[in-house]
């Protein structure tokens, strides 16, 4: 029981995840059905001649759109519990497969962009704190003030113009090198290329990633950096820092402590803008011709593909929720005062 009490904070947080996904999935189910257009008539309109009401009903049943909305909802729930999101109304392929064949490449891009932004943020934060140089600190502050002002595709287009059009140092943004030529193992392009031993392809993909990832890193770092610099400035003048100096804590430890105390504000931001990150990644993918989860979303809206769209939404939201879960857990680990059930006297 004492194990439970000590670990309750993350156990409870973990238990909330499926509930959140279920609630959001239900919302998505209804939202999708508000789209104008009837998938059955879309499907039938492609057939020539008149279609009998029986044939229409047959198509409706086959698409899983027969019965009342509540019947459909029950079927959707049943599928959700078994990890089955139904079949696409357009291609007939299982939605799960459709989503998971595209999701990994998008996630790969996001993860690379995030790691890059996080590392750059840490490095700049370190420079900001370590060196009392006015010019350096001022320029870091100016860079951080670009947070949320410049959209990622603007930065990407600038990079393309400079490094492809003018300098011709980097390859054209014309899609993936390995697209469709490799057996799919994990779905993550870089990982698959390594696993199948295609080191050349791996290198080419890396080179191709330079511009899109750099665009994401340059765009998203200021978001993290404003929080981080704010945290550093705040923690630096905290009585805690003063006491550490006064108690004779070595400078390295004090720096580390200030960095650590400021970190949780950065981690919070991660959770807040992960959703917009997916949006950014989708834009980047279409700009560089990568194809990914975004393309699926666009296709299913255009073709009124209810099942594909609701499956797409559920999975994307689940990814966001998992990201937020990780953010929460990391934060509670970094700063135990954030764990639920902890009453702090400090106000």
């Amino acid at each position: 029981m004492s194990w439970y009490r000590a670990n309750r904070w993350w156990v409870l947080r973990l238990a909330r995840l499926p509930l959140d996904i279920f609630v959001f999935g239900t919302i998505a189910f209804f939202l999708v059905r508000l789209l104008p257009g009837d998938p059955v008539s879309v499907a039938i309109s492609s057939r020539s001649g008149t279609v009998s009401p029986e044939a229409i009903a047959a198509v409706r049943t086959q698409m899983g759109l027969d019965g009342t909305v509540w019947d459909q909802l029950l079927r959707f729930w049943g599928g959700l519990f078994q990890g089955d999101l139904g079949h696409s109304l357009v291609t007939g392929a299982p939605v799960i497969d459709e989503v998971f064949s595209r999701l990994p490449s998008t996630i790969e891009l996001i993860v690379l962009g995030l790691i890059g932004a996080f590392v750059l943020c840490l490095v700049l934060g370190f420079l900001y704190l370590r060196f009392a140089n006015r010019a350096l600190r001022a320029s870091i502050r100016v860079y951080s003030s670009f947070a949320t002002t410049v959209p990622v595709f603007v930065v990407a287009i600038f990079l393309i113009v400079i490094f492809y059009v003018i300098l011709d140092w980097l390859p054209a943004p014309l899609g993936r090198v390995s697209s469709g030529t490799l057996p799919v193992i994990t779905g993550f392009p870089l990982v698959d290329e390594l696993l199948t031993g295609n080191v050349d392809l791996f290198g080419e993909t890396l080179v191709q990633y330079i511009m899109p990832v750099a665009a994401m890193v340059l765009t998203y770092t200021p978001n993290l950096l404003t929080q981080y610099i704010g945290g550093l400035d705040r923690e630096l003048v905290q009585p805690t820092t003063r006491f550490q100096v006064a108690a004779g804590v070595p400078r390295k430890w004090i720096f580390f402590s200030v960095f650590r105390r400021s970190l949780s504000s950065v981690v919070v931001v991660f959770g807040l803008f992960f959703g917009s990150l997916i949006g950014g990644a989708v834009t980047i993918e279409s700009l560089f011709g990568f194809g990914g989860i975004g393309a699926l979303g666009v296709r299913s809206v255009q073709s009124v593909d209810f099942t594909a769209l609701q499956g797409f939404l559920v999975v994307v939201v689940a990814v966001c929720l998992i990201a937020m879960l990780v953010v929460d857990l990391v934060n509670m680990w970094l700063d135990p005062r954030r764990r639920p059930g902890i009453e702090s006297e400090a106000s």
């Binding site: 905290q238 805690t240 003063r242 006491f243 006064a246 004779g248 402590s257 650590r260 949780s264 700063d335």
Partner: peptide
């Protein structure tokens, strides 16, 4: 060495 009035804010809250 120096000690202050408020130990709550002087000690490192996350360590």
């Amino acid at each position: 060495s120096m000690i202050f009035q408020d130990a709550m804010t002087s000690l490192d809250p996350v360590a």
